Amino acid sequence: MPAAPRAAAAEPDARTAHAPGAAGGLRQAGRPGAPEETPSETTRRLRPVPGEPVRGEGSRPDPALSWSAPAVPGDGRPRVSFARPEGYDGLARPRPLGGRLRPQVLAAAVCLVLGVGLLTGAVTGSWLAGDGGAGGAFAEAGDLWHSVPVDQLFPPTVSGQGAGPGGADRTWTRVAVAPDADCAAAFDRLLAKVLDPVGCRRLLRATYTDATRSHVTTVGMLFTKADAAAMTSLAKRFETEGLGSRDDLMPLPYAAENTAAAGFGARQRASWTVSVLTDAPVVVYAVSGWADARTVDGPQPAGEAMESGATSAPAQAGLGHEAKGLADRVERALRKNVGPATEHPS
């Protein structure tokens, strides 16, 4: 019993274990003669927890404590499981987030089915109607002779910027429109024979004069009964056989009484052009001459009369430019009425 007081006296009080030294440092109590500690050494050092060995730098973690280690019943390890996350609907009621995608997937499937059905119906309808794409536009062009106003096919005034000799501008004014008719006696015999394979559905014609009223030009559109293959075959024949340059295949003009074209007959034809379209069942042509009814001994196709250095009377008068320029612009008006699917620059 007498030894207990001495043991207590040897154990310093924790509240007075450290006291400031004379030089501002800290002196450790209970250790006489010990060096003064710096301020950074006054913090209590961490000690290992009893019963848990301290691993060195070369030690490895226990595989049994890994997240991927298989669970062993009764090993005392805590088990953690993750529940399905919850979201909230428009009324702030909790609901599983996984259910949010189901209506979207269902809506996408319905849209896909409807889209495929509409597309299939459109294709089937096109097959049943016998047209589609370019074929539909081709057939549509063949009906323009009765479905489009004459002023759209043959405008009252046609402007031709750069259409004259040397790039001069031209303006043509319509002086007469022929009633739509069949092709009986509408062409010379040889030209009628060449055009016979494509047939004649309807013929439209109009005659124009230039701004000086010294030239007259008849422009016509022959609406055929042919399909695209027949039109392509005729166009190829005109190109390979040079039919557009033969003066015995010139189109006839349309002369109207009491107009500047009153004397415009077969012997007054000076220049001409014929264009067989392959994207529409139409043949566009034009033939030009003088308004004073003078006869022409040497007519010249528009392509040759427009060549640089051409010295024929039709070339010098610019009648090749009259025929070609007016025919091109009437052809453009025709394609514009069909729509963008068949619109091509001339």
Score class of each variant (00 low, 15 high):
81 S>W: 11
82 F>W: 14
84 R>F: 10
84 R>V: 10
86 E>Y: 09
86 E>M: 10
95 R>S: 10
96 P>V: 08
96 P>E: 12
97 L>P: 04
98 G>W: 06
99 G>Q: 15
102 R>F: 11
103 P>G: 14
104 Q>L: 15
104 Q>V: 15
107 A>S: 11
107 A>Y: 07
108 A>S: 10
109 A>V: 15
112 L>N: 09
112 L>I: 09
114 L>M: 09
115 G>S: 07
117 G>T: 01
118 L>F: 14
118 L>A: 14
119 L>T: 06
119 L>Q: 00
120 T>A: 07
121 G>T: 12
122 A>Q: 05
123 V>S: 07
124 T>Q: 15
125 G>S: 13
128 L>I: 08
128 L>K: 03
128 L>P: 10
128 L>Y: 10
128 L>R: 08
130 G>T: 03
131 D>A: 12
132 G>I: 12
134 A>V: 00
135 G>P: 12
135 G>S: 10
136 G>M: 13
136 G>C: 01
136 G>D: 11
137 A>T: 10
137 A>V: 07
138 F>L: 04
140 E>C: 02
148 V>G: 03
149 P>W: 07
150 V>A: 14
151 D>S: 11
152 Q>K: 03
154 F>M: 06
155 P>S: 06
156 P>M: 04
160 G>M: 02
161 Q>M: 07
161 Q>D: 07
163 A>Q: 08
163 A>C: 04
164 G>R: 09
165 P>A: 13
166 G>I: 01
166 G>L: 11
167 G>D: 12
167 G>T: 02
168 A>H: 11
169 D>Q: 05
169 D>S: 06
170 R>A: 04
171 T>V: 15
172 W>T: 06
